[in-house]
Amino acid sequence: MHRPTALVPRRYVAIGARGPEDVVADARGRVLTGVEDGRILRLDGLTEPAAPRVEVLAETGGRPLGLELLPDDALLVCDAERGLLRVDLASGAVRVLTDSAAGERLRFCSNAVALSDGSVYFTVSSRRYPLKQWIGDLVEHTGTGRLLRLAPGSDTAEVLLEGLQFANGLAPSGDESFLVVAETGAYRLTRYWLTGPRAGHLEPFAENLPGMPDNLWRAGRHGPVWVSLAGPRVPPLDLLHRGPPHLLRAAARVAVRAPFRPSGTIAVLAVDDQGEILHHLTRRHSGFRMVTSVCETAGHLILGSLWERGIAVCEAPATK
């Protein structure tokens, strides 16, 4: 495992809403995020001394999670309640692209990427638990996550993979020959081949991570894949997962009702297209909790969180 270095915070920026779960940076350095009340926000000037400008772009009517910028001034939104959406950033109009797969309503749409051929790939974290009970899936270890594909012009999603452990963030390789899928419940990144002799096959990409990978983000084909770690490894949870299914189900029922407070340890990783870790940045006893996303802009790392009422601006590491 790559030796960790310090994650250095520069400022915390309140945004007037809770849960900026995913953060993505546009070509002008502005950051877009979706919050708990269903709004899509654009934050400008995050790395400047003055207070940032917060603009409401749209309201999904649900709970936006993963975001993906499109080249035609639009935004893909994985909404945990409404499915896969398309938002026109100029008008704020929201359109449902698909809300079901294989005859089943999407319960927990999580993250999406759009490739150059117009196809959209997206994840469903759990078929058993909704977002508000996400911890139940991690405890029960259901393995009901999915990877899906929406072909250009289609409104019917194709199921490519099943049995993933809390499928979450997605990122393409630089040449779009494969996708990297975060499996939060298995502490790993998985490679799904799109082209070549292994097209349609799954294989390990980066395993035994030091925490639970959440959203992924990539700045262009030559940049690394940034990986947010929503929490550190939990040894008692690893031990529990060796138990019988009835014990896991009972523990999950308790977990979804118990008070939850995230760890104060935060961390992010950067990996290359060979699955090698380029950076492992971490901070213990942080005032910012549960990092569910990270993007890079203007020489800074921007951290999002399902838990917080704002975002954190941190130093970006030197390029490797």
Rank of each mutant, 00 (worst) to 15 (best):
D99A: 06
G83E: 03
A90E: 15
R39H: 08
E55M: 11
L46A: 10
L89N: 03
A74Y: 11
D72P: 00
D37V: 12
A50Y: 13
C78K: 00
L46C: 10
E59C: 15
P52N: 08
D37C: 13
A90T: 14
P52W: 04
L97C: 08
V94D: 06
R53Q: 15
E59A: 15
R42K: 11
L41C: 08
D99Y: 02
L69F: 01
E81Q: 13
D88Y: 06
T60S: 04
D88K: 04
E81A: 12
T60G: 06
L43K: 04
E59F: 14
V77D: 01
R28E: 15
E36T: 15
G62P: 06
R42M: 13
G45L: 02
A25R: 03
A80K: 04
T33M: 06
R63V: 13
L69C: 06
P71H: 09
E36P: 10
E48C: 13
P71G: 11
P64N: 01
E68F: 14
R42Q: 13
R28Q: 15
V54M: 07
V77N: 05
G34R: 05
G83C: 05
L84G: 07
G38C: 12
L43R: 04
L69K: 00
D73A: 15
V54D: 01
D44K: 02
A27L: 13
L76T: 04
L84E: 02
A80N: 03
P52A: 02
R39F: 03
G61I: 12
G92V: 04
L41R: 02
V56G: 01
T33Y: 01
V31R: 00
C78H: 05
V56Q: 04
E68S: 15
A50C: 13
S91W: 08
L84K: 07
D79H: 05
A58T: 04
E68G: 14
E55V: 12
V87C: 06
A25W: 05
S91L: 11
V23P: 03
P49Q: 12
V24E: 01
R53N: 14
T98H: 06
P52Q: 07
L69M: 00
A50G: 15
A51P: 08
A50F: 14
R30L: 14
V24M: 02
A102R: 15
V94N: 03
L85W: 07
R82P: 06
D44L: 03
E104L: 12
G83S: 06
A25M: 01
G92Q: 05
G38H: 09
R86A: 13
V54G: 07
G61F: 12
D72C: 07
R39Q: 09
G92M: 01
G61Q: 09
A25E: 00
V31Y: 02
R42N: 09
V35C: 08
V96E: 09
E59T: 15
G103Q: 12
L70I: 07
A93N: 12
L97R: 11
L85K: 00
G45F: 03
P52S: 07
A51G: 11
L69I: 06
G92I: 01
A80G: 04
G45K: 00
D37F: 13
P52G: 00
P52F: 00
A58N: 01
E55K: 06
V96W: 06
A74F: 12
V54W: 03
G61N: 10
